[in-house]
């Protein structure tokens, strides 16, 4: 039991970060606006969660422009994808065991 809980990723304790990862793993590149609308978050809130994911090298950040407007998109890294999978497996086992 304790073993399983240890396998849960601390970084994914937040539902928002988990939500971001859920969207990113099934897409190539997703822009800030789409994440914000889908998850229904404020700019600042989303940015801070994205920042912590980026710091841990779970996501790539690509800054670009659409016309003259700055546009930032995100995609999941190999590390991020692997950690997300491990976390899901741990969650699944946790649910089955309780």
């Amino acid at each position: 039991m304790k073993d399983i809980i240890l396998r849960l990723n601390k970084l994914f304790e937040s539902r928002i970060r988990l939500g971001i990862m859920s969207i990113l793993v099934v897409n190539d590149w997703v822009d800030f606006k789409y994440l914000k609308e889908t998850l229904d978050l404020t700019d600042g809130n989303l940015a801070s969660h994205l920042h912590s994911l980026e710091k841990n090298n779970y996501i790539h950040v690509r800054k670009g422009f659409i016309g003259r407007k700055p546009n930032t998109s995100f995609s999941v890294t190999d590390v991020g994808r692997k950690e997300f999978k491990l976390h899901l497996n741990a969650l699944e086992r946790l649910i089955k065991n309780i």
Binding site: R15, L18, G19, S22, I23, V25, V26, N27, V30, Y34, T38, L39, L88, L91, E92, L94, I95, I98
Partner: peptide, 23 residues
């Protein structure tokens, strides 16, 4: 038990997000 329900909710929410953002 509460914990279990919470995790189930989380999983369901994630599933919905994945579905909605890919199809």
């Amino acid at each position: 038990m509460d914990n279990k329900q919470e995790q189930l909710d989380t999983l369901q929410q994630m599933r919905k997000l994945m579905e909605q953002s890919s199809r």
